[in-house]
Simulated scan of single mutants.
Amino acid sequence: MFFPRLKWVAIISGLLLLSACNSADVPTSRPAASLVNTESVQSIFYAPSQQFIGRIEAYKDVDIRAQVSGYLLERHFEDGQMVKQGQVLYDIDPTRYQAAVAQAKASLAQAKANLTNAQINWQRASRLLPQKNISQSEYDRLTAEKLSSEAQLEAAEALLSASLVDLKHTRIVAPFDGRIGQSEVSQGDLIANSNGRLTNLVSLNPIRASFKVSERERLNMGLDQVDAHSSAQTETAIVQLKISDERIYAHKGQLDFIDNRIDLNTGTIGISAKFANQQQQLLPGQYVEVQLTSHASVSALVIPRRAVQSDLEGEFVMLVSEQGTAERRNVSIGPVLEQGVVITTGLEGDEQVITAGLQRIRQGVPVQVVEPQAG
Rank of each mutant, 00 (worst) to 15 (best):
A109C: 11
T236F: 05
V173P: 03
S163N: 04
A118D: 00
A158T: 15
G188Q: 07
S294A: 15
E154M: 13
N37A: 11
G181C: 03
G334H: 02
I258P: 06
I238L: 13
S332C: 00
T293C: 07
G357T: 12
Q280V: 12
V367N: 02
R96T: 09
Y249K: 04
V68H: 14
S34W: 13
L347G: 01
V290P: 10
I248Q: 07
G14L: 15
A192I: 02
L18W: 15
S231P: 06
K212Y: 07
E138Y: 04
G346Y: 04
K60P: 02
H251P: 00
A104F: 03
Q279K: 10
A24M: 14
G375K: 02
V68I: 05
P48V: 10
F2P: 00
L89K: 07
I333D: 02
L282H: 09
G181K: 11
S43T: 15
L73H: 13
G285S: 06
V26T: 08
Q352W: 03
A10F: 13
K105W: 13
I191G: 02
V36L: 10
L153Q: 14
N260W: 09
T344F: 13
T116Y: 12
F45A: 14
H251T: 11
N114E: 13
I343E: 01
G340S: 13
Q281T: 06
S13E: 04
S272I: 13
S43R: 14
Y139R: 04
V68L: 05
T355C: 05
Q87A: 12
V202Y: 03
L108P: 01
L159E: 14
E327Y: 03
L312Q: 11
Q233Y: 02
T345C: 00
Q51P: 06
I262G: 05
Q281A: 04
A109T: 14
V9L: 10
V320S: 09
S203C: 07
T170G: 02
V165L: 15
V36E: 14
V226Y: 15
D227Y: 06
D79C: 10
A273D: 05
S163I: 03
A66P: 12
